[in-house]
């Protein structure tokens, strides 16, 4: 994949071709002073139609690819575009400072908040420094420490989830990856300030959940959230990572699926074609959704809100009791988008 300029996924190739044509016409028009405005406008309309068409037929695996698109807005874009006055706070006070999770104070509109975000980086160098968004125990410990700081001063917590998963490595196990993630689940459940979790890209299993317990869960339209990566699922089921596409379909990992399971409260729409086609609009839509959700949460009494938080988690799951389906929380319906 090219390091500079936009990159295209396989299924975006027809769009790429039209965009090349538009570019050619524009260059031609410039050099010859001919007015090709109508033709170019027509091509643009065609491109937008095509995008809508592709969007309406996206498979779960294609959504996973969009969620991982190198041009997709990442934590840095949100910290710059959705928040203001971000002041980063470093370190877990025990081991180190994990680049895979950013934490700090920020303003969301007029409000003071605390942001916790998986960080993926935008350049190759950045991405390596962030370990591609795969956090170690010190990252999760940093996250909960800063959230508890927010708790102390009454600041709402906003988490942005975008990780392929918590890092599977020797150091991570030595420093208790499982224990630290578990502790985060317990401690986040105890926070009394409003907590909004938003899956902006990849929701990779326990690594995502480690900053994912809150009053509300938002999810971008093309983000995914899964108990295991499609590749991991594929290698368990078929002993090869190459059936990730099939795995993505059976795992029911799209925003629509998660909404149906009542795990996700709201799907945040992305620009047609995916957030990478128009990052600024995508970031702005998330900003508006966060402000609106925070308005709603702050209108509730704390005690009531905490009961709702527990009740929501408490009711997730589908099983039979006395032979009767306990599926209060699952809407019956199609999963197609």
């Amino acid at each position: 994949m090219a390091a500079s300029g936009p990159s295209y996924l396989d299924f975006e190739q027809p769009i790429h071709e039209i965009e090349q044509k538009i570019e050619e016409l524009e260059t031609f028009a410039d050099s010859t002073q001919l007015d090709l405005g109508d033709q170019i406008a027509q091509l643009r309309l065609l491109r937008d139609d095509l995008r809508r068409d592709i969007q309406s037929r996206l498979t779960p695996w294609q959504r996973v690819q969009i969620a991982r698109h190198p041009g997709r807005p990442v934590a840095a874009d949100y910290l710059e575009g959705a928040f203001t006055d971000f002041v980063e706070l470093h370190g877990d006070r025990t081991f180190g400072d994990d680049g895979a999770i950013a934490t700090g104070f920020a303003k969301l509109g007029e409000r003071r908040v605390l942001v916790v975000a998986h960080r993926k980086g935008k350049t190759t160098k950045d991405r390596i420094a962030c370990n591609f968004g795969s956090a170690h125990p010190e990252g999760y410990r940093k996250a909960i420490l800063k959230m508890q700081l927010a708790e102390k001063y009454g600041l709402p917590v906003i988490t942005l989830i975008d990780t392929p998963g918590a890092f599977p490595g020797v150091g991570a196990e030595e420093r208790g990856q499982a224990f630290i993630i578990a502790r985060n689940l317990l401690e986040m459940a105890k926070l009394t300030v409003p907590v909004i979790c938003t899956v902006i890209g990849e929701g990779g299993s326990g690594g995502a959940l480690g900053i994912g317990i809150g009053d509300r869960m938002l999810m971008l339209q093309n983000a995914y959230y899964s108990v295991i990566s499609p590749e991991g699922c594929s290698s368990i089921l078929w002993k090869t990572a190459e059936k990730a596409s099939e795995a993505a379909a059976i795992l029911k990992l799209t925003a629509k699926d998660l909404k149906r399971f009542r795990i996700v409260d709201e799907i945040v729409p992305e620009p047609v074609g995916g957030a990478h086609t128009d990052p600024a609009t995508a970031v702005d839509t998330v900003r508006e959704a966060l402000i609106r959700t925070l308005d709603e949460l702050e209108a509730l009494e704390t005690e009531q809100r905490l009961e709702m938080r527990y009740a929501k988690l408490r009711s997730i799951g589908v099983f039979l009791e006395d032979g009767v389906l306990e599926a209060r929380r699952v809407e019956v319906g199609s999963t197609a988008d």
Partner: peptide
């Protein structure tokens, strides 16, 4: 799927 994942959250809460 994610229903299993969320049992982690449920039990911890």
């Amino acid at each position: 799927g994610a229903l299993s994942l969320m049992q982690m959250a449920k039990t911890s809460a």
